[in-house]
Design a protein around this nucleic acid. Structure first.
Lengths: 346, 346
DNA sequence: AATGTGAAATGAAAGGTTTCAAAAATGATC
DNA sequence: GATCATTTTTGAAACCTTTCATTTCACATT
């Protein structure tokens, strides 16, 4: 039994059925002008009878206003979801609809979606994380597109952004690790393809300087294999490290730029019969749900996703009203969550 | 420095700038008719110069086709996200845009969003899980709205659905638990407010019958406090159970309808100095990422979210084409993932 | 030079709304 | 019942596309 597409009633149908003009129907719909009680009733009955709902495309066209916000992430994952969730909440309360989509880490897809959003006349496009095509973005921006960057920025582009203060946080993390008994502090990250990773690395470098140590190449492990499938690839990478080097050639703690990379590393460390944190400590990034359930629980960096969502919306709202005071660049603090995957200060 | 909203160029602007008619511009845009090489070039230059992008609202209006699919979930969480992600992937490949949103567990919000989607003339509205207002849904459906239910169904409504075979799976889970040495099998769930929970409960009842046991009220714990904040509330509930009853008045294993409820329970059990699974075993539902990292790792039910996304899209596509053969109701198998939170058969 | 042909370009209508100036209806007043 | 003031209602224009029946153009044939 097929379900046939029935064309929805239009305002004209409603007008005909209730015997008034379309203008009047529109008026009762939007309360834009006084309508006599009896007329109003007739119209409402007709609307009910025809199950009429105003066509949003026609309305938006008429208003030249889409009420649409785009929210693009490289992927649908825990961190991006939480930010999106809060952002959407605020937007919803202000009567905006958010189109939230991942891009599957494909630059082509990203451009496709931005284009789609531009065609849909999205009023702001929010881009969180990822390695979008900077040049394309600047082009769009200079052509009048309203862009907002989250968890990344583009130097000298004028595009507003909301970020976490990765550099400062990692810098203090290094100091904290030193204080709690770690001697040789390493760094493990996927390829530095985003500004947040740049900042984390910069923070590491500063932190090492703070504690008067030399930056040692062999303590720094950066690889693009960690970009996708973080856990499995980190596991493999760590196994490789452990089998080619002796313990004292290795750091006794790693600052790691992702919780899931940390998880993979811990798996490998355990498999070699070594202990976390006594032999090698590990930290993560994001404070994902798993962190507290790992054995040992993972020391990590918590980011206030709700705050980010809220501030992002405030800026977006200002952009919509052409009310953005300046080319905002906002830095949000992070929080170091100390658990047992690193030595505890004694 | 404010960024002013600049009105985007229209097809008329392009036509003017390139000195041709709008019809011609449209033709080069869509390749709908032959356009001479020189004209085409002129038009393309103008498009480039004006950074023109066709207005999607106007197009959709003209076509009376939105290319939009709604995908509504009660909340943005791991399970719903994964299904949505795969669904979106397929939809994208077919040129459809998916509006994915959570409803914050509010029925009012659900209706609001369905209404919005109807106004946007979404071609299909997919509803996953949750306790949507059945009557409202049936009304909409009978008025011609194209609805697709995921992970739930409505009896005799004719609304197509894709579900997991919860009843069968839980039934065999009970059998398996018995075989591996558990004697007293309990059931813990949030209030049975969705058909998937009903089915899980039904499976439990059948499973108990299979192993020739009586259904015991005191082994069945169903409470609406487990609906939100699952982990924390399950922890509290389990603590209450453990402090008011002796071990032999309690089941020696619980079939639990959610991973996070199981997590909370395990926390409480540990706090009482009891062991999982020796004293009390626990199972979960969904195979969330945390499951394998819990100590002990959690026995749970894995659901093939990719398959569900794929089938859902196929049905949605058929609905769009008025091609749905019958009032489909599809049942997908689940997989029991045995880990150490339950005794292992010896 | 007139005719015929096929290719290219045009322009008005349609899609569903809202707006607003103008028209119509109502009611009060003399 | 004519006039004026007020309240309701109307209907066409506008928003930006696409479509398609016509028109125009360029060129070849007689």
């Amino acid at each position: 039994m097929n379900k046939k597409t029935k064309k929805m009633a239009t305002i004209v149908d409603v007008a005909k059925l209730s015997g008034v003009s379309v203008g009047t129907v529109s008026n009762v719909l939007n309360g834009t002008a006084k309508v006599s009680h009896t007329t109003k009733q007739k119209v409402e009955e007709a609307i009910e009878a025809l199950n009429f709902r105003p066509n949003d495309m026609a309305r938006s066209l008429r208003f030249t206003k889409s009420n649409l916000i785009g929210f693009l992430a490289p992927d649908i994952n825990e961190f991006y979801n939480s930010v999106a969730k809060h952002f959407v909440e605020y937007a919803y309360q202000s009567g905006y609809t958010v189109f939230y989509s991942g891009c599957g880490y494909s630059q082509e897809r990203e451009r496709d979606l931005i284009d789609l959003l531009l065609q849909k006349r999205a009023e702001v496009i929010v881009l969180i994380g990822g390695n979008f095509d900077d040049e394309y973005l600047c082009d769009m921006y200079n052509n009048g597109a309203k862009l907002l960057l989250l968890d990344r920025h583009i130097d000298n582009s004028g595009i507003p952004s909301v970020e976490f203060d990765n550099a400062s946080t990692v810098r203090s993390l290094v100091g904290m690790l030193k204080k709690s008994g770690h001697k040789k502090i390493g760094f493990m990250s996927e390829t530095i393809c985003m500004t947040n990773l740049e900042d984390r690395y910069r923070g590491y470098v500063r932190g090492i300087a703070d504690i008067r140590q030399e930056l040692k190449d062999q303590f720094i492990y950066i690889s693009d294999e960690l970009q996708l499938n973080k856990k499995a690839n980190a596991y493999a990478a760590m196994k490789r490290l452990l089998s080619t080097r002796s313990l004292d050639e290795l750091p006794d703690v790693f600052v790691v730029t992702s919780d899931y990379v940390a998880v993979g590393m811990m798996d490998a460390i355990n498999e070699f019969g070594l202990r976390v944190p006594e032999d090698i400590g590990v930290t993560g990034f994001d404070n994902s749900v798993i962190c507290e359930y790992l054995r040992p629980p993972l020391t990590t960096i918590e980011q206030d996703v709700k705050k980010m969502g809220e501030i992002a919306w405030n800026i977006a709202a200002d952009m919509i009203d052409d009310n953005l005071k300046s080319n905002e660049r906002i830095l949000l603090p992070q929080k170091i969550v100390i658990r047992n995957s690193t030595k505890i200060k004694n």
